[in-house]
Design a protein around this nucleic acid. Structure first.
Length: 394
RNA sequence: GGACAGGUGGGUGAGCGGUUAAAGCCAACAGACUGUAAAUCUGUCCCUCCUUGCGAGGUACGAAGGUUCGAAUCCUUCCCUGUCCA
């Protein structure tokens, strides 16, 4: 590929690239010397469960690898103690080396579904942050001003609204910036919400006599609710290790509008292909195709077939799922339906169970059951409460 | 160190002595509708118990005490947060 083609390839699907000319220079330089560029992205050590939102970034990092460059998967085991200030944060207790190792392993098995292990370095920022002395930290702090830190959107907002900002939170961008110095990064990537932190990296690198890194941001993927960005804590995520069936169903649950965004950010389909698909006016078919692609990416084609078959049968035809759990009732629940539902894990509490029954949400062996007592003859019974199914052995 | 303001259910946010398990909104859950969805409409949304009733108890409004027949609402102390002044 020519340099122009490389840039076009890398730019596709990026939210922002700062600055393109610098990237061009480095790509040219790299081609000349044969030294690969170093592409960094940082991840929080506490949440090693990746979801599709993370894969937007990972897919883009993979593109750099495709061109022969090195990706540094940085686990922020030290900055993670602060927690990127997205809200009310306190310092988290330090993680033990065992926990960190365990999380790192989990990360590896997940990210290598996308990244090429041969062209990936997994690093921890405790490597250089932990040995820093107070004086080192003060020196680092001296390189940036409070006013500039407060320019960051969420800081500015919180400051203005009188929401607490703890001093240590201000240090987070500096720590992250120093990571780039320590790793001599050529490019740092992150979601658009990371733009500020990534830019601080440029300035700090300059202060340390390094050429400033190129900043590449990827768009944030909306969660399944279509409103907020995908995040585990919001419960609107699709995890990349989720079972094919669950994954398929979650994809089917997104709105038709959101589906096109997912096509754009989560598949290799070109924009014209997506537009063509959209023009066909067959949202149902398009969404199933999307769900198949995603399941196949993280599992296999066969798993995708199976997931689709399950979906057709269970959701579209409303039949009993193939994989429901069988529960044997403990003694003493008698014929109280709420107690049975609680014992089966279909309700959170007896009060909750009672409400659900009264609301007509309970189906037993295919028939709605709205009374609070039931005599179950010995044998197996299929219970359904909303989307949850259980087989109960009496 | 001083002067103010504030801490309510998953989130917002009303209530400022009693019809308040605590408005409204959002989220969530269930039902209807549907091509999966979305949207819309309806209902629910602390727990326990039973004689399942617009039932009876128990918890709950930062924490602990106190005043009251009665407190999320008043008082005291403590904890936490913000603003202004030094």
């Amino acid at each position: 590929m020519t340099i122009d083609e490389q840039i076009a390839y890398l730019k596709k699907g990026l939210a922002e690239l700062i600055r393109e000319e610098e990237l061009r220079e480095r790509l040219t330089q790299s081609a000349k010397t044969g030294v690969p560029l170093r592409i960094k992205a940082g991840f929080d050590p506490t949440a090693p469960d990746l979801h599709l939102g993370h894969t937007v970034l990972l897919r883009k990092m993979k593109h750099f690898q495709d061109l022969g460059h090195t990706v540094i998967f940085l686990i922020g085991d030290n900055t993670g103690l602060i927690g990127d200030p997205t809200g009310r944060n306190t310092t988290r207790p330090p993680m033990t080396p065992e926990e960190i190792d365990k999380n790192a392993e989990t990360y590896k098995t997940q990210v290598f579904k996308i990244l090429d292990p041969v062209k990936t370095e997994v690093r921890f920022n405790s490597e250089w942050l932990a040995p820093m002395q107070f004086i080192d930290i003060v020196t680092l702090c001296s390189k940036y001003t409070v006013a500039r830190l407060l320019e960051r959107d969420d800081f500015a907002k919180r400051f203005k609204e009188g929401i607490p900002i703890s001093l240590h939170e201000l240090l987070y961008p500096l720590g992250q910036a120093y990571d780039s110095v320590a790793l001599k990064c050529d490019v740092e990537m992150g979601g658009t919400d990371q733009k500020f932190n990534l830019l601080v990296g440029r300035e700090i690198q300059r202060d340390f006599g390094q050429p400033p890194q190129i900043v590449a941001t990827t768009p944030l993927l909306q969660g399944t609710d279509g409103v907020e960005k995908m995040s585990k804590s919001k419960g609107n995520y699709i995890g990349i290790t989720e079972r094919p069936k669950v994954m398929f169903r979650k994809v089917m649950g997104i709105s038709d509008d959101l589906m096109w965004r997912y096509y754009e950010l989560l598949t290799d389909k070109s924009l014209s292909e997506v537009a063509e698909l959209r023009g066909r006016q067959e949202p149902m078919a398009a969404k199933q195709a999307l769900a198949r692609i995603i399941v196949a990416d993280f599992h296999s084609g066969e798993a995708a077939d199976q997931a689709q078959a399950d979906f057709d049968r269970e959701v579209r035809e409303g039949q009993v799922p193939s994989d429901i759990e069988t529960i044997t009732l403990p003694n003493g629940v008698g014929n109280s339906l709420p107690k049975i539902l609680l014992a089966a894990g279909l309700a959170d509490s007896r009060t909750d169970a009672e409400r659900k029954v009264k609301a007509g949400a309970v189906e037993i062996n295919g028939d709605r059951h709205a009374s609070l007592t039931i005599a179950l003859p010995p044998g197996q019974h299929v219970f359904r409460l909303g989307k949850k199914w259980k087989r109960i052995q009496v």
